[in-house]
Design a binder for these strands. Sequence first.
DNA 1: GTTTCGGTTCTTTTT
DNA 2: GAACCGAAAC
Length: 670
Amino acid sequence: MIDFEKELNAEQLDVVFHGDGPCLVLAGAGSGKTRAITYRVAYLMEKGVNPENILLVTFTNKAAGEMKERVKQITGQTSFLPWSGTFHHISYRILKQYAALLGYGNNFTVLDSDDSESLIKICIKEFRPDDTKRFPSASAVASVISFSRNAERPLTEVVEERYPQWLMFLNELHQIATAYEKRKKESNAMDFDDLLINFSILLNQPGVGEKFSSQFQYILVDEYQDTNKIQASIIRKLSVKHKNLLVVGDDAQSIYSFRAATIENILQFEKDYPGAKIYKIETNYRSSEEILLVANSVIENNREQYKKELKTSRRGEKPGLYPQIDQQSEGQFVAEQIEKLLKEGVPPKEIAVLFRAAYHSQMLEVELVSRGIDYDYRGGTRFFERSHIKDILAYLRILNNLSDTAAWLRVLMHEQGVGPAAAQKVIEAVRVLHKPEEVEPTGKGVLSGKALAGFENFILIWNKLSSSVMAPSELIDALVNSAYKDYLDTEFVDSKERLQDIKQLALFAENYEDLSEFLANTTLQESFALPKPGEKKVEKIVLTTVHQAKGLEWTAVFIINLSNGAFPSERSAREPKGLEEERRLFYVAVTRAKKHLYLTYPMAGGAFGDFLSGPSRFLDEIGTELLDDHSLLSTDVTVLNDDSAGITYVPESRPKKIRPGSFLVDVEDL
DNA sequence: GTTTCGGTTCTTTTT
DNA sequence: GAACCGAAAC
């Protein structure tokens, strides 16, 4: 028997013991919402609900894994939750079973954003007007199309609102969007958005919707503030029968509006689910009061927000504000402080450095490496997105799905003598094929000269891979021993590391028999952590983007590069409601800290240029009495800006709320 | 018509 | 570092 009363507070207990019917849980940062959800699941299982009948939707697969682990510990049972994961993951699993109903083969490819862009690029070539110089880039076009689909709003509307500068290309954008849909379908491929949309469509099919809404007696959704319209409608369809839906969210932590997430889903919950019960869990178990005061004082500047104040009984030290001369000295400072914390006995895994964008960490990384401090990096190019990993996967993808245009393009362009034109010819000829042995004659038929020679090189590898049936890991091994290894050796100085990565991939692949499932999981798995062979799992400090820090906590947190243009990001701040989202992002960052919080920014030197952008406006929003301000300590320093500007800046004892550097550029002026 | 190469530019956030 | 562009080379 689980002693719930002992493990949970009154607010959490109400949620765990909630009877049947829909409910919305508003949970502040650090309030133990994960705890509440996991105990709720444990409670349901103790009550005799079959785990098969519980659907647990989380924001990342990692979160799902952690929750499963905790439920296991609490219940002491070995039975796991078969239906837990991200929306995309669950959608994939079910779509694979029913692919034929929607006109797909069940070996369909899941395209990641890179793949989507390469298909869109082809479509842009087809439809962009010849006489225009500046047409939106493939990634930009991809994001408009994606946003419109996720928000369930017409393309025209999205362009008008978010990208008015492209209104002149509206016709072309429509044509490109249509062509892109067609290409995906012909490639037997779905992008991330298709997974959601097709799942939603699938649930309209009488038999299917019925089956799953019957099966899922209890549905729990975490991070509900970051769901979009389609995700909400999927949940609505799945919960229609039993209506035992529990969603958990915090409107103050909504940071994915660029992916069309909308807090409307939270605001309208009572309307969508009449009779829904609302619970609030507000007691913070994570941070000291001093840290929460900083978080509260910034977030209260947002207009679109429920008024709410996080409360705690913990006392600690004031967060410190540490302006540094430039990015290099910022890196040095942070590294020094980390060394100090480590010396004081803070475990490495309890220390994290947070930043707005992946590339902001470069200077710090240099510094950490030179001091021999090991770190775990989260952000930027993920493992499965590294170019050599994608190369290897592309061969496997073709084997799995001969019409996978994006994979063909990648593989063919690697060969000497084959450029975009020749690749296109092969792709057109090959995509109607069904047997691997037809590839060679068909491809040769459309090529000549150098392109043909290049294609023959590809065929050498191809025949090796397709001659016998191999497991995913064997296929990867075969590739490592092929010409690809030579390619790595000649092209890259770090070919050894790249080869190591590929061996890692092979190791990961050993968990899979089914090729298409393996491939889908490489796309849907946002991260995976295998200790390197022979390497013991060491605890390391963490470097991460704020987005990836969501849901996590550390004893000591550094937020770096807090200058205008960097955080808030200049681009975001220009978007409608962008600044408010940046503020929520800052709020998320601050509330990750349990005891120690360090806020730093470089006074000079932006990411690329050498301008003084000034401290983040969010720093000015913090009451001066709330921070341990170290600005004055550096007044003896003279900062020389770049020569062309000819500005010499001498910090003086600063007036209230204005910090060194803040006189120059404001985000709104950029 | 195609491919390759060298120089330049620009980096948000993620399933 | 990788994506883009223009010009040279095939």
